[in-house]
């Protein structure tokens, strides 16, 4: 582990603990942590174990997935604007989850909603690689992503508006601007194994990503199997991003911002960025999720709103500086 990755891991761990300490009810921090471990005070234990722990775990896992996925996509597509949320992967995952959940197919239980999200995410990555290709300009990718995001967003809204359940249409906001509020441990238990499998696939691509920075031909001569790498990457991003979307909706911009912030501190090899970016993403999402709880009481702000508020100006700045480079 590089020093940068270790630093980010420490930061994420600190924010994980802080996330456990923040909530609507006033439980003294140490008392709450003691109740979490020992179960001494039943009321505090319920709040810590059933409400705050799943939230912190999902913040950690989803943030890690977004940071790692962003770094891997940016490396593979050699495109600074690649990010699961921005290029439509998260939106497609949300559409897949919505299609399964609101039609009642989720009554078959277990992983059905997750499978819907994974199918959506995988379809989007395949579509993007097929349409924009790896040698396309950043603009082509972003335009394809914008088209995909709008289309999946519109279809999600359509599906929810057509639902006979009167509350479904209010849930459009959740799927487009996600939230970690009031998730259960069961949600985390469904999402984390899938995410971990995705992480493993993405880390397995690390050396191939390094070789690809030298160009496809050089990479091939170094023994990189390009179709195999692409397949692993698609599956890895779909698993890690899709599993998160299925439980927390679309949380944007984390995967865009974090790799860019951390890249200057690495040796510019994609592999050295992956782990640091993962922990950095976890730290950013945990911090944002703490902020929404502190900023608003009562009807809580969706964390996806906050990450978009931070991320969108950053994205704009990135596009501007990109245009200067290309001009």
């Amino acid at each position: 582990m590089t020093r940068l990755a270790a630093l980010m891991a420490a930061l994420a761990a600190l924010l994980f603990l802080a996330s456990l300490a923040v909530g609507a009810s006033d439980i003294p921090v140490l008392h709450g942590l003691a109740a979490l471990v020992t179960g001494s005070d039943p009321l505090a234990a319920t709040i810590m174990r059933d409400i705050r722990l799943p939230r912190a775990l999902l913040g950690l896992g989803i943030g890690f997935s977004l940071g790692l996925g962003g770094a891997a996509l940016q490396g593979f597509l050699r495109n600074p604007l690649a990010e699961p949320g921005l290029v439509g992967v998260s939106g497609a995952a949300a559409l897949g989850a919505v299609a399964v959940f609101y039609t009642g197919l989720s009554a078959f239980g277990g992983f059905t909603v997750q499978l819907g999200a994974l199918a959506g995410a995988a379809g989007a990555v395949v579509f993007l690689i097929g349409l924009a290709g790896r040698r396309s300009s950043p603009m082509t990718l972003v335009l394809a992503g914008v088209a995909l995001t709008s289309l999946t967003g519109a279809l999600t809204a359509l599906a929810l508006n057509l639902s006979p359940n009167p509350f479904a249409s209010y849930e459009i906001i959740f799927w487009l601007l996600g939230s970690l509020k009031d998730r259960a441990l069961g949600d985390a238990a469904l999402a984390l194994p899938l995410m971990a499998a995705g992480w493993a696939l993405l880390f397995a691509c690390a050396s191939a990503l390094d070789a690809l920075t030298l160009g496809d031909d050089t990479a091939r001569s170094l023994g990189v199997n390009l179709p195999r790498t692409a397949t692993m990457l698609v599956a890895g991003v779909a698993l890690s991003a899709g599993a998160g979307v299925a439980v927390a909706g679309t949380i944007g911009f984390v995967g865009l911002v974090v790799p860019h912030l951390l890249r200057p501190f690495t040796d510019e090899r994609p592999s050295s960025l992956l782990l640091a970016s993962g922990f950095g993403g976890a730290a950013l999402l945990l911090a944002a999720d703490i902020a929404v709880r502190l900023l608003t009481t009562g009807r809580e702000l969706n964390v996806g709103v906050l990450t978009a508020l931070i991320g969108a100006p950053f994205f704009l700045w990135l596009v501007m500086s990109n245009r200067r480079v290309m001009a």
Binding site: G104, P164, N165
Partner: peptide
């Protein structure tokens, strides 16, 4: 619960 599922329920 209404006939169709929603996160609200």
């Amino acid at each position: 619960d209404p006939a169709a599922p929603a996160l609200a329920q």
